Measured scan of single mutants.
Amino acid sequence: PQEEYKKRAKKALKKGDEDTAREALKRAGLSPDQAEEFIRRFL
């Protein structure tokens, strides 16, 4: 589910792994723009 992928993305970002985070967010159904926004907000 979407929440699970978002959790995964946050874990990846904590490790500084933005590529894995983007992949997880893409799987969560976010557009690339939404994924970038999510990452920017998190960092």
Rank of each mutant, 00 (worst) to 15 (best):
P1N: 14
P1T: 14
P1K: 14
Q2P: 09
Q2C: 14
Q2E: 13
Q2Y: 12
Q2M: 13
Q2K: 11
Q2T: 12
Q2G: 10
E3W: 11
E3Y: 09
E3R: 10
E4C: 12
E4Y: 14
E4N: 09
E4A: 09
Y5H: 09
Y5V: 04
Y5I: 04
Y5R: 03
Y5F: 13
K6D: 04
K6T: 10
K6V: 15
K6H: 08
K6S: 05
K6R: 10
K7S: 10
K7H: 08
K7I: 10
K7Q: 13
K7A: 13
K7Y: 07
K7C: 12
K7V: 08
R8I: 15
R8A: 14
R8C: 13
R8D: 10
R8N: 08
A9Y: 02
A9D: 01
A9K: 02
A9T: 02
A9R: 02
A9S: 02
A9N: 01
A9Q: 01
A9E: 01
K10Q: 13
K10P: 01
K10S: 08
K10Y: 14
K11N: 13
K11F: 06
K11D: 15
K11H: 12
K11V: 14
A12K: 02
A12D: 02
A12F: 06
A12E: 03
A12L: 07
A12S: 05
A12W: 04
L13F: 02
L13A: 03
L13V: 03
L13W: 03
L13R: 02
L13P: 01
L13I: 05
L13N: 01
L13M: 04
K14A: 15
K14T: 11
K14S: 13
K14R: 14
K14M: 15
K14H: 12
K14N: 09
K14D: 10
K15N: 14
K15L: 14
K15Y: 12
K15D: 15
K15S: 13
K15W: 08
K15A: 14
G16I: 02
G16H: 06
G16W: 04
G16V: 02
G16M: 04
G16K: 05
D17G: 03
D17S: 04
D17M: 06
D17I: 03
D17H: 06
D17W: 04
D17L: 06
E18I: 15
E18W: 15
E18G: 07
D19F: 12
D19R: 13
D19N: 11
D19Q: 13
D19E: 13
D19M: 12
D19G: 10
D19I: 13
D19A: 14
D19Y: 11
T20G: 14
T20M: 09
T20K: 09
T20N: 07
T20A: 14
T20D: 07
T20H: 06
T20L: 10
A21V: 03
R22I: 05
R22L: 06
R22A: 04
R22D: 00
R22Q: 03
R22Y: 06
R22F: 05
E23Y: 05
E23I: 10
E23S: 07
E23W: 07
E23A: 10
E23L: 08
E23K: 10
E23Q: 10
A24E: 15
A24T: 08
A24P: 00
A24L: 15
A24G: 03
L25P: 00
L25D: 00
L25S: 00
L25W: 00
L25C: 01
L25V: 01
L25Y: 01
L25A: 01
L25T: 00
K26A: 14
K26R: 14
K26G: 08
K26L: 13
K26V: 09
R27L: 15
R27E: 12
R27D: 09
R27F: 10
A28R: 01
A28E: 02
A28T: 04
A28K: 01
A28M: 06
A28Y: 05
A28Q: 02
A28G: 07
G29T: 01
G29K: 03
G29P: 00
G29Y: 02
G29H: 03
G29R: 03
L30V: 04
L30T: 01
L30N: 01
L30R: 00
S31T: 14
S31E: 06
S31R: 06
S31M: 06
S31N: 09
S31K: 06
P32W: 11
P32R: 10
P32S: 11
P32V: 11
P32Q: 11
P32M: 10
D33S: 12
D33K: 11
D33E: 14
D33G: 09
D33C: 12
D33R: 10
D33N: 08
Q34V: 05
Q34L: 06
Q34T: 04
Q34C: 09
Q34A: 11
Q34S: 06
Q34N: 05
Q34Y: 05
Q34G: 05
A35N: 01
A35I: 15
A35R: 06
A35L: 09
E36L: 06
E36R: 05
E36G: 04
E36N: 09
E36Y: 05
E37N: 06
E37V: 06
E37W: 06
E37S: 07
E37M: 07
E37P: 00
E37Y: 06
F38S: 00
F38M: 04
F38L: 04
F38I: 04
F38W: 10
F38Q: 01
F38Y: 08
F38E: 02
F38C: 07
F38N: 00
I39A: 01
I39K: 01
I39P: 00
I39M: 06
I39Y: 02
I39S: 00
I39W: 02
I39T: 01
I39R: 01
I39N: 00
R40M: 08
R40E: 07
R40W: 10
R40N: 07
R40C: 09
R40L: 08
R40D: 05
R40A: 09
R41Q: 13
R41H: 10
R41N: 11
F42Q: 05
F42D: 02
F42H: 08
F42P: 01
F42Y: 12
F42N: 05
L43S: 08
L43N: 09
L43T: 09
L43H: 10
L43V: 08
